[in-house]
Design a protein around this nucleic acid. Structure first.
Lengths: 211, 211
DNA sequence: GGTAATCAAATTGGCGCCAATTTATGATCC
DNA sequence: GGATCATAAATTGGCGCCAATTTGATTACC
């Protein structure tokens, strides 16, 4: 009956940040869209106090990951197809637009770094959890974007990615698709090394839209 | 000594939302960058309770408008030149990129609407406060962007605009610059009516960068 | 037997108190 | 006379209690 209790983990001595913990669980799919987040359950699950839970819930509402119904409670935001589409749309515009800057700024060391992150993703396809994979993917894209020389852009895209993908696990449906993503990462780094702006733009566009 | 007490307003019977009130005061320049936001002062100023103040402060920290120093307090975020530059940069990329969609979707009624909002801005240049002007400008740009058919994009740009401009008043330094902005609004609507994508893109770019 | 109203259990959410930390003040010592 | 240390005031921030609202169940009624 109570899905929260069922997934309860071993009590950790000190909680780093409750907001982050709940966020991780939503992203990992352990708290599926629609789940009601009762304060008492969260209190016990993360071994924290009532005000901490409330602050975390309020922050997640601000992030649009959780919905609040007055006097009813908080529940994980339902996946919105339109919104996901629109966010992808925004990502394509931004990331394609800065392709030339990425290529202009990328040093040999930067390219080597990107290869490391791309390889790490490929490695986790075989030996890793979905959440690890998701985060490795995020790291690769963050470092790629950082080369554009606009820190705000990196933060912004990181934010809107979380905003929609309530259960990022469901994004990559098949293993074939995941492996394809890994190959595309490699191809993007290749394009950067060849200083081929046009190809990087096209790769980026396809990579985001089919994710 | 206490700038908050000095600006204290008449007590309103019921506070709609404290977060919004503080936000307005920061945007209006009544709480300049660097100001320390003591909880007791805010409590009295907005005639609300301690937890309400704390929730509002936490939300404003999430919005990056207020900075939090543990065990020291909260203060209005200092204007960051680099960040403002980066946000303008992002705006240019996005708004220029959707110029074609705006023109494709704009009906005669939409164009008439935009003219109304542009005229309202011009009117407030003469008979209006800085805050009213700021909001009229926001309304024009929101409706313009809405024509691109991407609701998330509208919300996103509204968010990042607030995020940087701690004191939007200081954005338009001279009256000449404000009047120029008004003329540019008109020119943008003209370009839409003429279905001149290239011109709208160039106007948009210049309008944002010199703001 | 089904439906509606009433009552009890549970949950949300507002509010204030008190401890911990920091800052300002004043006294003492060099 | 200036600097340093100790003390007191002020501010932050954690925590729990209790009222208001809602949900679910039991009972009475049609």
């Amino acid at each position: 009956m109570n899905s929260l209790e069922a997934t309860a983990r071993a009590q950790e001595p000190q909680s780093p940040d409750v907001t982050e913990l709940i966020l991780q669980d939503i992203l990992a799919g352990r708290l599926p869209p629609g789940t009601w987040l009762k304060q008492i359950d969260l209190e016990r699950r993360y071994n924290c106090t009532r005000p901490e839970v409330r602050r975390a819930l309020d922050r997640l509402v601000q992030k649009r990951l959780v919905e609040h119904v007055p006097n009813r409670g908080y529940h994980v935001h339902e996946q919105d197809g339109r919104r996901a589409q629109e966010v992808s749309d925004i990502r394509v515009i931004l990331e394609v637009a800065v392709s030339d800057r990425i290529i202009a700024n990328a040093s040999a060391a930067d390219i080597a770094n990107l290869r490391v992150f791309a390889l790490r993703f490929d490695d986790l396809v075989l030996n890793g959890t979905m959440l690890e994979l998701y985060e490795a993917n995020l790291v690769f894209h963050r470092h790629l974007l950082a080369l554009a020389g606009n820190q705000e852009l990196v933060e912004l895209i990181t934010e809107i990615r979380q905003r929609t993908s309530s259960a990022p696990v469901s994004q990559w449906r098949t293993r074939a698709r995941i492996e394809q993503s890994g190959r595309e990462h490699q191809q993007m780094v290749d394009a950067i090394e060849r200083r081929d702006v046009g190809h990087l733009m096209e790769l980026t566009r396809r990579h985001i839209l089919q994710a």
